[in-house]
């Protein structure tokens, strides 16, 4: 793990990617600091931290885009996959390298803290809570970016796909869910889900497109019938509440308001773990295909 980690770290700086990441991070967060804290005249840092989420959405893909895709493209993966190390060491080495750079970047807030100190009082609990929140949110985002990077050989594809995923995660919150008021959307979504799940299972088992399409359509029909005859009224509220549990945005904003919620911490950490695990599965799968 150490070898991979050190190489990735030095590669961030020889390729210039690390400098780009840090520069943009400092510039944009500096702007938010000026705009939300200095300009407002309040020592409350919450608005600044809330705005910074969108910055992560754009910057994390830069950090993770080449981590695995480049190895595959340059065939250097043949070197590391035939070395006597495990896939966990490989993936975690890369993951922690990106995390380190992220920590270096976010530690800029201590500089801001010093500036605030000159002008007024620093609310250390909010500041440290947010530092930690950024850390675990970044951890989850980086794991997702790393996973996307393992799926493709092309850095640009990797960056764009991770950006799209992170944008969706950014906009995925209660306000978005509230727009899905009508239960017809829920019905359609459930039918589509039933179709694709059954289609996929049947196509793996039978390998026949006609049969799998037919059984997928059948499953969708069953779901429709269930909605139409059995559950006449859907309690949209409940579904919404369930879905909003997965909102990165809501959970992060909670932190910036000063709520230190343990479920959210577990949520971000398990997301990070899960996606690192997926990355390993992807690498493993590639060997077996």
């Amino acid at each position: 793990m150490g070898a991979i980690y050190r190489r990735e770290m030095s590669s961030f700086f020889t390729s210039g990617l690390g400098y780009v990441f840090l520069t943009v991070f400092y510039a944009v967060s500096g702007y938010y600091f000026y705009d939300k804290v200095i300009e407002s005249g309040l020592s409350d840092t919450s608005p600044m931290f809330e705005s910074m989420l969108i910055m992560f959405v754009f910057l994390v893909p830069i950090l993770t885009m080449r981590l695995i895709s480049e190895e595959k493209k340059n065939r250097t993966d043949q070197g590391i996959l035939t070395a006597p190390i495990s896939l966990w060491e490989l993936v975690l080495g890369k993951y922690f390298a990106a995390m380190t750079l992220f920590v270096i970047a976010e530690s800029i807030i201590f500089v801001y803290a010093i500036i605030i100190r000159y002008l007024g009082d620093v609310v250390w609990s909010t500041l440290l809570g947010n530092y930690f929140a950024m850390l675990i949110l970044g951890g989850a985002f980086i794991a997702i970016g790393l996973f996307v990077s393992s799926l493709t050989e092309n850095q640009m594809t990797s960056a764009v796909v991770s950006l799209v995923i992170m944008l969706i995660l950014y906009y995925y919150d209660e306000t978005l869910l509230e727009k899905i008021q009508s239960d017809s959307i829920v019905k359609v979504a459930a039918m589509a889900a039933a179709f694709f799940i059954v289609y996929r299972i049947v196509s793996v088992v039978s390998g026949n497109y006609a049969i799998s399409t037919a059984s997928g359509a059948g499953a969708a029909g069953v779901v429709f019938a269930v909605f139409h005859f059995a559950i006449k009224e859907i309690s949209v509220d409940k579904i919404q509440r369930f879905l909003s549990e997965f909102s990165f945005h809501t959970r992060y904003v909670e932190f910036t308001k000063g709520v230190f919620s343990v479920p959210s911490i577990l949520f971000f950490i398990s997301t990070a773990f899960l996606f690192n695990f997926f990355t390993i599965r992807v690498l493993e799968k590639r060997r077996w295909s």
């Binding site: 190489r7 030095s10 590669s11 250097t76």
Partner: peptide, 10 residues
């Protein structure tokens, strides 16, 4: 391997 696994920027 057929294509040596070299990191070109090192």
């Amino acid at each position: 391997p057929e294509i040596p696994p070299l990191y070109l920027d090192m």
